[in-house]
Design a protein around this nucleic acid. Sequence first.
DNA 1: ATAGTTTGCGTAAACGTTTTCACTTACAAT
DNA 2: ATTGTAAGTGAAAACGTTTACGCAAACTAT
Lengths: 332, 332
Amino acid sequence: MTNRKKITIKEFAEKLGVSIATVSRAFSDKGRISEKTRQEIIAKAREYGYRANIHARNLTSRSNNTIALLFPAISHEEPDYFITEIMLGINETLTKYRKILQVHPFPLDASEQELELYKDYILNGSFEGIIVVAGARGSNHLVSAAQSGNIPYAVIGHMSGVNENSVLFDNEYGAFLAGKYFKDTGRQHPAYVGGHLDKRKKLGFQEGFGANANKIIFAEGGNSFRHGGMALENLQKTHPEVDCVLCANDVLAIGFIKAALTRNIKVPRDIAVIGFDDIKPSRYYTPALSSVSLKLFELGECAVKILMQVIKEEKPVNSETIECDLILRQSS
Amino acid sequence: MTNRKKITIKEFAEKLGVSIATVSRAFSDKGRISEKTRQEIIAKAREYGYRANIHARNLTSRSNNTIALLFPAISHEEPDYFITEIMLGINETLTKYRKILQVHPFPLDASEQELELYKDYILNGSFEGIIVVAGARGSNHLVSAAQSGNIPYAVIGHMSGVNENSVLFDNEYGAFLAGKYFKDTGRQHPAYVGGHLDKRKKLGFQEGFGANANKIIFAEGGNSFRHGGMALENLQKTHPEVDCVLCANDVLAIGFIKAALTRNIKVPRDIAVIGFDDIKPSRYYTPALSSVSLKLFELGECAVKILMQVIKEEKPVNSETIECDLILRQSS
DNA sequence: ATAGTTTGCGTAAACGTTTTCACTTACAAT
DNA sequence: ATTGTAAGTGAAAACGTTTACGCAAACTAT
C-alpha cells in the first residue's frame, strides 16, 4: 500500500536534526552515543519506518552474514531426506550466530558446465563461508574452488583429498556395532549390501563379526529402493544360507526387506536386517527398521561450529568425528 | 594460499590502462563497448583474478537476486519431508531465473518474540521476495509483514486472509477421488481421520462418497505417527464397523496402519486406507500406501512463477491451483 | 582555577560498484 | 569539404551505509 520509497539515513537524520553518524551509531553497538538519544532515534525510526539499507551495510562490513550449504540432490524423483535433518541442524545453529542460510542443491553427476556454474557461485562469494556435503562426483571440485578463492569452508562427510575442516561419521564403528550384534545374537551367515566405495562400513562390519569375518558375503547394491530388492534376489540365488544383512543405507534396507517379504521370507526370523542412516521414516516401517543412526542434526550443528572457527581463526581446523548409535527395532 | 586482498575495479582498471566504467561495461550487457575490448578485459580479469564485488553490485542494483523461503519446521525430532521436495522444485526453477535461495525454517508454534525475529528478517529485506509455506500458527503474520513492507511474496497452501499470490492444492478434489474410490469398490462404512481445520478434505471426501455421505465418521487426529495409532484405537472402540479410512496425511496413515496390523486387522481387507500427500517413503511401506498425491515439485515451480510475476508486474496476481492425483497402491 | 580525561556528536572519507553525461573519433551521407 | 550520426570511452556522481578523526562540552582530579 504505502508505496513511498524507503527513507534513507540521510533523509531520516535531517528530519531528526542529527547527523547520519549518530543515526548509524544508534543501531550499532560500536560508537559512542548517549542512551537517551539512542532511544529517541529508535523510537523515531519506528515512526518513520526507517530501516538501514542492508546492501549498503553489507558493502561497508564486507559481509552479508550468510552461509551457503551445497549438497548433492539426487533428483526430484528421489529426494534425499537425509539432507533435511542436516539442514535443520545447520540452520538452528546458524541462528545462534545470527547467520542466514542459503542453499544450493547440486546434481549428483554435474556436467563440466554445471560445475563451473557452482564454482562461480562460490567464487563470487555472496557469503561468509560454505558448507559442502560430500557425496556427489563434483564435491571436491567445489572445495578446491573454495580453497583457491580463500573462502572459509567446512565439509560434511568424508571427501578424498580433504583432511581438515570436516565432520566425519564414524561409519566404521557403526558397522562394527551391527556386526557384533549379529554375532552376539547367534547369526551364522552374514552379508553386506552396499556400494564398493564404502570400504569403511565393510571393514567395521567384518571386525564386529569377529572370528568368522571371512565368511561375510558382499553383495553389490546402489543406494535406491530398487537396488535393495535386486540384492535380495541375487543373494537368494547365490547364497540362500545368509541369515543377517547390513545394508549401507536405509532405503536399500527397506527395498531388501520388501523383496524378502514378497518371497515370504520372514524378517527378522529368516534374515535379520540392519540399515544405515536411521532416517526418520525407517521407524514407521513394518517391521520397524533397525539402523545405525548418524545423528544428522548434531552433524549439522558440528559443521557450523567448525566453519565458524575457520572464519574466526582464519586457518583450517581439525576434523571432528560424530559417533554412531545402533538403534535396534523389529527388523533384527 | 594467495592471501592477497582481492583486487578492486579501480586497481584492475589502472593496470589495464582503461577506465573503471569500461571494466564495468565488460561484465554487464548494458552500456556500449566494443567486442574486442570486452574480450581483452575478460581475459585479463581471469589472469588477475578480478571479480566484481558482489556487495557493491547489490548496492547499486538494489537487489541481491535472492529469494527467501519460509517454511514451518516441526522440530528436528520430526522433520517435515514434505518440504524437501518443494524446496527442490523451487530451487530448480529459481536457477532458471538466476536467483539464489535462502531458507528460514520457522517454528510451528513461534512465540511472540520469535515471530518478531522473523518479521525483522522480512522487513530488513535481504532478498527480492519471499515464499511462505502455510501451516504454522504465525504464517499469516509473516505475510502481513511482507504486505506492510511492500515486499513481493507468494504463498504455498491455503492461508486465512490471503487470496492472492497463492499456490493452492486442490485438496477437496483429491479427497473427492478417495471418497469416490471407496464407494466404487463397495466399502460401506467410511471414516475420515484428521484435524478439524481441514474442512475441505472432509467436504471433498463426503461428496465423493455420495449418497451415504452422512454416514462418514470423523476421527480427530493430529499430524503425527502417534496420532494415527490413537485414531485406530478410538475407532475400534466407537465404530468397529468402519471399513475404509481417509487420513489427512501420510504419516498419520502409516501410524494408523501400523496400529491396525498390530491388532491383527488386515489392510486393506478389513480396512482400506488412503493417505494424503504421497510423500516418497509411502510407497516403500508394507503395504505400500495409497495416497492423494500433491505434486510437490510442481507446487514449488508454480510458487516461483507467481513470485516472479509479482516482482515484475509490481502488483498481486491471481492464485493458482495445483491438481491432485489419487495414487493407488496396496493399502486400499 | 587549571589541566586532563571522558563523553557525545558532526564532518567527511571510505566501501566498490553502476550509470549518466559529455566528449572524441570514425564513418556515412550530402 | 561539411554536416550528421553512431560508437567507444572516461570523469564524476550516484547508491546508502560505517567509521576515523576532530572538536566542543562536561565532567574529574589536582
